[in-house]
Design a protein around this nucleic acid. Sequence first.
DNA 1: CCGTTGACCATAA
DNA 2: CTTATGGCCAACG
Length: 118
Amino acid sequence: MSDSGFYEAVWDLVRQVPRGRVVTYGQVATWLGSPRAARAVGYAMFNVKDPDMPWHRVINAKGEVSIGGHLHRPDLQRGLLEAEGVGFDASGRVDLRRYGWAPQDCPATARSSVAKEA
DNA sequence: CCGTTGACCATAA
DNA sequence: CTTATGGCCAACG
C-alpha cells in the first residue's frame, strides 16, 4: 500500500467515514496535511477502484454534491446519502454542521466548533 | 523536469 | 444569485 500515498490516504480516510456522515474535500485534504489539496482529493475519488469506497460521503465545501455530469450521477450520490439518513436541503445541500464528520485521530481536526449546534 | 488536467476553495465584481 | 480569476495540490505522459 501507500503506493501513491495520497490516494491511499484519501481512500483510507473515506473508508473511515461512518454511515450517515459526510466530509468535504477540503477537510479530507486538510487531514492529509494539505488543506489546499482538495482537488487532489477529488482526483483520488475519480481514480478509486474500490467497490466499497463510500465516495458518496465525500462532498464539496458547500455541502453539495460536486460530481454533476460525470460517470456517476449526483442523483445517485444523493440517493445513497439519503439512504444513510443524511438530509438534503431544498437546494440539494447537506447540513455540514449536522452531518459533517471528522476523524478522531487527526490533529488538524482541532477546530473550535462543535458543541454549539442546535 | 515541464505541461496538462481535475468529483476544489476562496474571493471579488 | 451568477460569473470570473487566482491559487494550491497531486498524479500522469
